[in-house]
Design a protein around this nucleic acid. Structure first.
Lengths: 169, 169
DNA sequence: AGAAAATATATGACTTGTCACGTATTTATT
DNA sequence: AATAAATACGTGACAAGTCATATATTTTCT
């Protein structure tokens, strides 16, 4: 008796609940929330973007890398780095030079200023991982990662494979 | 002995492997792949966008809904719907009218043409869920969803909570 | 050596998502 | 009843992804 004849509140409620178990929708919402949390934390940690943080972190851990290396370790498209790096260079966080061995490659190196930015953001992002570790045991993380591996294999199936695949076994 | 003195290939490799267990990075890559798979499938299923598919699906399942209802069941921001719906109306997929009980609300209804679009896309998206069900048992999905629930709770913690939270227990 | 194929990067166009803010309408308070 | 607070929606601005295509450089093949 809501007096609302235009929409069926109960069915809407039921639909929202069913959507909770829809992996695809959940993944979207969770990723968006995760991204926002990272952005908020990085706002505190020096005001850098997520792409910038990932890049600084990678460079700090492994030393100079090419743009493709960065794209590979970040599992992202190189275009994202192509766009972010010139700005980072302008901010003085990284330097870039053409590789001597292979003129197609660009070697990206962390500057001292970039190192400072790393040391500003790192404790904050480390805090995040520490809190995560309070909430999940290492074994649970491993199990979750195992599920994610399998889910990733699935979502990377080409559309044709999904459509052609008849129930096999 | 790669002859490459400018970058440390082994460390890059090691870094990429360590990144595999970084939940945050994994989530981003997996969601992106999932989205692309959906886009590819929908390209076959009538050429609608993901937002359009979600909306048509919801409306088909529950009947007329307000924009806020749609945002709620889709766990997304209402602005996304505010932008998509006028286009959908123009394509003839939905109709919209001001709610009688509450003049602020917009009641969105699936048209016959929208129903056709649903019946075009639904088998394809259903195929996807069927293949998923081949790869994961219901119990596994439930467990994964359980993990995702916990992970979502975590990523929805405000940044201040992360930063202020001292190791408690 | 020369031609063809592969690779690295840049760039334009697009989708999905967020937030903040403005306006209209309802609901709650005094 | 009048005012204040809450809610629904539209819209501008931005971040983070994707793809396709163009160009420069290497590598491979004949």
């Amino acid at each position: 008796m809501t007096g609302d004849e235009e929409r069926d509140v109960e069915r809407i409620q039921a639909r929202a609940e069913r959507a909770d178990t829809n992996l695809f929708g959940r993944m979207a919402a969770i990723y968006a929330a995760s991204r926002k949390q990272a952005q908020d934390l990085l706002q505190v940690g020096g005001g850098i973007s997520i792409v910038e943080w990932r890049t600084i972190w990678d460079l700090h851990e492994v030393g100079p890398m090419t743009i493709s290396d960065l794209a590979l370790t970040q599992r992202t498209d190189h275009s994202q780095l192509s766009r972010a790096l010139p700005q980072m260079r302008q901010k003085g966080l990284v330097s870039m030079r053409q590789a001597a061995q292979d003129g197609r490659q660009t070697i990206v190196t962390l500057t001292d200023k970039g190192r400072d930015a790393y040391h500003l953001a790192a404790p904050i992002m480390g805090r995040r991982r520490a809190v995560l570790a309070d909430v999940f045991t290492a074994a649970e993380i491993a199990e979750l990662v195992g599920y994610l591996d399998r889910f990733e294999t699935f979502v990377r199936l080409p559309a044709e494979d999904i459509l052609s695949k008849e129930k096999i076994e």
